[in-house]
Write a protein that binds this DNA or RNA. Structure first.
Lengths: 199, 199
DNA sequence: GCGCATATTGTGGAAATCCGCAATGTTGTG
DNA sequence: CACAACATTGCGGATTTCCACAATATGCGC
């Protein structure tokens, strides 16, 4: 399951030439003749980047892009167009497209963009896996443990937490110890560091 | 020192009409006939956003934009152009321009963009001032206190910190209490929260 | 030298946390 | 119903933190 460049274009000649270009530079490619075909093959775990033609039969490039974003994909998308107009480029980039290039374009430039996009995706996935692992840890906590954790993270003493939750201090201590164990930390500070930014 | 929209365009007619449009919607404006004039008036504390013409005598819009970014400004910039081309728009947006619109354009749209840009700038400044205030707090700590703080944030016990710094536990306790005082927190967790993200 | 900030250490007690051992009640599933 | 998971509480002791009171030493500016 390595990263590939996904070519989505209804023009077979372009798919072939772009595919050959990228492959020759060491970028593995998978081609799709339509947005629908790519969408059918897509899954959240697909890694890499997308080279997406603007105008296609059926679903257009921008439409596919919107669908991918709606489905939570952060796959870098490079739009390709032979008849670009400024508002479309602006719209695409403001929505988070990685790049927007006009055909024909400089081969070297394009390959460089693709490589940058692949690198971005890799970094994003690394960051996301960090957040995910934290979330999965948190999700393994019981309701009570999460409540206690929130109060611990608010810097409150066990005594105060016990009072707010209307339980004994001992109970809080137990939950606290259990959640520390589950979160794999030894102190409240480590917990705060672990959750810094996420959640 | 409130936020304004700064109009930079060498066409007086456009400065006037845009200025009137924005003022009529409650956005105060200041106009400059050239990039050089704006740059002369610019300071890091200037708040608001910039409406910047692409093609001007002397320094061009993109050139001014680059200079501002080099000087550390994060002022949102909306590019205005009567003869836009796609690569220029792509380049501007990828460099961090807020928007790129072609003249003539829909008045409502433009005003909305300006208002969004002003809001973005305000948010950015609020976030930055937060980071600054934290940094200024940290800078008031003595060397030793910062060392202790680092180790505290690493979740280490006073005993361990004392060992690593080759001093007595009591000394660590003193530094710890002093730095908590200076940072305005009561617990290590609050300290971690305060510094989450920054530094 | 004097004053001030900083760094250092000690004593001792109050407060809080950490933890093993033990037990009870509730809830949901097979 | 038996079993497992969760929530709850108490006891007692070890460890740690918090803090007031007190003292010594170093370096820097006036």
């Amino acid at each position: 399951m390595s990263a590939h460049a996904y070519l989505v274009d209804d023009d077979e000649a372009i798919r072939d030439s772009l595919g050959w270009l990228l492959e020759s530079r060491g970028v593995t490619c998978v081609s799709y003749p339509s947005a629908e075909d790519f969408l059918a093959a897509w899954s959240p775990s697909l890694a890499g980047c997308v080279l997406l033609d603007i105008r296609m039969d059926g679903m257009s490039g921008p439409e596919l892009f919107d669908v991918l974003r709606e489905r939570g994909s952060r796959l870098p998308v490079i739009f390709l167009t032979g008849h670009g107009d400024v508002p479309m480029a602006v719209s695409a980039l403001k929505k988070g497209a990685f790049d927007f290039v006009e055909k024909p374009c400089n081969d070297n430039e394009l390959v460089n963009r693709v490589i940058e996009a692949l690198k971005l995706d890799e970094n994003q996935r690394a960051a996301a896996s960090g957040a995910d692992s934290v979330n999965s840890l948190v999700s393994r906590l019981t309701t009570r443990e999460q409540q206690v954790m929130d109060l611990v993270l608010a810097g409150k003493l066990n005594k105060v937490i016990a009072d707010e939750l209307q339980v004994s201090m001992r109970t809080v201590e137990v939950h606290r110890a259990n959640l520390f164990e589950k979160m794999g930390v030894r102190t409240a500070v480590e917990l705060a560091q672990l959750l810094a930014g996420k959640r």
